[in-house]
Amino acid sequence: MTATTEDDILRSARALLVGGGYNGFSYADVATSVGIRKASIHYYFPTKVDLVSRLVARYREEAEAGFADMARRHPDPLDQLRAYIGFWSDCILDGTNTFCLCALLATQIPVLPEEVVAEVRAYFAMLSTWLAAVLDNGCKQGTFTLDDTAAAEAEKFMAAVHGAMLSARAYGDGKVFALVTEPLLDGLTARR
Rank of each mutant, 00 (worst) to 15 (best):
I92N: 07
V117S: 05
C139T: 14
A151L: 14
S33L: 04
V34E: 01
V180R: 06
K140V: 02
L104S: 12
F144H: 06
P110Q: 10
G21D: 07
R72H: 12
A164N: 11
P46F: 02
P46Y: 04
V49M: 10
H74Y: 13
A31L: 07
F177H: 06
Y27P: 01
L55Y: 08
A83S: 06
S26A: 09
A28P: 01
A151V: 14
G187S: 14
W88N: 08
A133Q: 13
V134H: 12
F45I: 07
I41D: 01
M1R: 10
K156M: 01
T32H: 07
C139E: 12
P75F: 02
N97Q: 15
E64Y: 03
A168F: 00
R58N: 14
L16K: 09
A57S: 15
Y22V: 06
L188W: 05
L10A: 04
G21I: 12
D94P: 01
P113N: 02
F157R: 02
T181D: 07
D8R: 13
D50C: 03
D94N: 13
E182Y: 08
T129W: 03
K48C: 03
A63C: 04
G163S: 15
T2A: 15
A125S: 05
L127I: 08
F87W: 03
L112S: 01
A151W: 10
A178W: 03
V52H: 02
P75Q: 05
V117H: 06
A122V: 04
Q80W: 08
V134M: 13
L184G: 09
D148V: 07
L188K: 07
D50P: 09
A106F: 10
E62I: 09
D29R: 07
G142S: 10
L81E: 05
M126K: 06
K175C: 09
A57I: 12
S89D: 13
W130C: 10
T2N: 08
T98C: 00
K156S: 12
L135W: 01
V30Y: 00
K48M: 05
T5P: 01
A71F: 00
L17A: 14
F157T: 06
H42P: 03
S26F: 12
R14S: 10
Y123W: 10
T2M: 14
A65P: 02
L127R: 15
A178D: 15
Y44E: 06
Y43L: 09
E182S: 11
R169A: 15
Y44P: 01
D50R: 03
A133K: 13
I85F: 10
A178S: 08
G66Q: 05
Y171E: 00
W130N: 09
R72N: 04
T96L: 14
T145M: 14
L78V: 00
D136N: 06
V18W: 00
L127E: 12
M1N: 15
F45Y: 11
T4D: 04
S128P: 00
I85R: 09
Q108Y: 07
D7H: 10
G142A: 10
D148T: 11
H42N: 13
A125D: 11
L81D: 00
S26V: 12
T32R: 15
C102S: 14
T98E: 06
V161D: 07
